[in-house]
Amino acid sequence: MTFEAVDICKAFDGFEVLRNVSMSMPLDGLIGLIGPNGAGKSTLFSVISGFMPPSSGHVTFDGVSMNGMSASTRARAGMVRTFQVPKEFSHLSVRENLMAAAPGQAGENLTGLFLRPGLVRRQEDGLRKRADAVISFLRLDRVADSSAGLLSGGQKKLLELGRALMVEPKLILLDEPFAGVNPVLIGEIMERIRELNGRGIGFLIIEHDLDALTRLVSRLYVMDQGAILAEGEPVAVLADKAVRDAYLGGEA
């Protein structure tokens, strides 16, 4: 039950964005990934989640090699990502956003839609309940019927987390869940992440808010210039001289 990235390299026109990046984590882990802007963190996410092919290297998930799998196949296998800039379905309501994320709906097939109307109706009722449960878990009740495009930045981050939950993933890759979110809501999101992790869902989190992140995760990876610079227990990693030089400019 581990997630592993082995020797991932990615080059654009000869420019190496990722250089032999390897990481591994248990599927129920709570891991942070930090690094200065341009370190390659989001690119690593894109490669891991199948949005970009690596130049070399491979990803295994729960013992299965994910090489060559499309992004949607990887998500169905249990690894769901969110995006740095939230990609909400802006014309759908919050509830519909969640409902659209759930897998295996007969009504999402033209044949099922017209040939099995009873099943479609039952599934929709069940799905609405599931979506409402996620909505109240994330405290989005007041905006459940609003268009997602009208939400605040923080609410959109929560919505993306909620959509990921509807897929019932084993591992969620969060790209800057606290960016642009007010401090109160950050505490809220952290609380939810802890709770979900307690239920066995793993998290790999890119975040610049080191203060929040170190309180949340049990282990940190640090990237710089496309390579892993350090890894380990958060307090120890942040005390590391090389990390301070790269990330904090040596002054902190």
């Binding site: 992004a71 009504g107 990921a164």
Partner: peptide, 28 residues
């Protein structure tokens, strides 16, 4: 009309809003 107002239609709207997000959620 039935398609547009169905779960299928919901996904269609989602495709229009953001294809990448839909892929990230496991739908092609």
């Amino acid at each position: 009309w039935r398609i547009i107002n169905s779960p299928f239609g919901r996904v269609i709207q989602a495709i229009r809003d953001n294809e990448d997000a839909l892929k990230a959620l496991g739908k092609d």
